[in-house]
Every structure is written in C-alpha cells, then in structure tokens.
C-alpha cells in the first residue's frame, strides 16, 4: 500500500544505506598498488570506462557494500569492500593529464587485482 506523507518524510530521515553489516575480509589495504580489470559486461557496472585497466593505489577502505552489478540483475547483494582508489591524472589521460593532479574513485573489490 502507498506510504502516507508522514511515513514518506520519516523515510527521508532514515534513508536506505547500501552498507552491509557483514564480516567480509578486505583483500587490499591502504597504500597497496592495484590494477583495475578490463571489464565490459552488457549489464550494470560501476567501473567507469576511463579507469578500466589502469594502475592506482588504495587510498582508503570504505567498508562493505552491496555489489550493484549483481543487485541490478536480481542475483543478490554479493557484499564486498569498496575502496577509494587513487590514480594519477597522467595514468588516466597521458600527457593531457595535469602533472600533479589525481583522480579518486570509489571502486568495488571485484573490479581490482593486485598491481
């Protein structure tokens, strides 16, 4: 049944976190060099093209979240760590990248391998 106004406003205050309270061990720790995989599935994926098959460094570990690729396809939550991965602008854009500049992107563990 439809939620009423009071329930709707209460729901905005709570939200719906994608964080999962599951004891999943991280595969990577901050400071570790990693490489993103070259993935091109036809379904939902959160690894933008501009950071595929690139070298970066784990900047921080955000904890465990629902994996959207499986969640969007009705294949379950597959909870796993999400990391901030730091890339140099030169790694992503070559000579067009700023010499000192960096990109920091949230990346699910399934998109990463050791660098």
């Amino acid at each position: 049944m439809a939620i009423n106004a009071e329930q709707a406003l209460a729901a905005t205050k709570v939200g719906a976190t994608a964080r999962v309270d599951a004891a999943v061990l991280p595969r990577f720790t901050p400071g570790t060099r990693v490489r993103t995989l070259n993935l091109n599935p036809p379904g939902h994926i959160r690894l933008p093209r501009y950071i595929r098959d690139k070298e970066g460094v784990i900047e921080r570990d955000h904890g465990v979240f629902v994996f959207p690729d499986t969640h969007a396809a009705g294949l379950g939550e597959k909870p796993q760590h999400v990391y901030v991965v730091r890339f140099s602008a030169r790694e992503l854009w070559g000579p067009q990248g700023g010499a000192k500049d960096e990109l920091l992107v949230d990346v699910w563990e399934d998109y990463l391998e050791p660098g």
């Binding site: 439809a2 905005t12 719906a16 379904g43 959207p68 969007a72």
Partner: peptide
C-alpha cells in the same frame, strides 16, 4: 521517487540500469 521505491517493485540498482 520515494513512494515508488516504497512499493518494493524494484531496487535502486535496477533503477540506475533502467536509466542506462
């Protein structure tokens, strides 16, 4: 947005994929 999600017909990632 929120009332439609509250029906439980689909999740946020299905929503994003539908946009894509």
């Amino acid at each position: 947005f929120l009332p439609v999600f509250a029906t439980g017909a689909f999740n946020i990632d299905e929503f994003r994929h539908a946009i894509e």
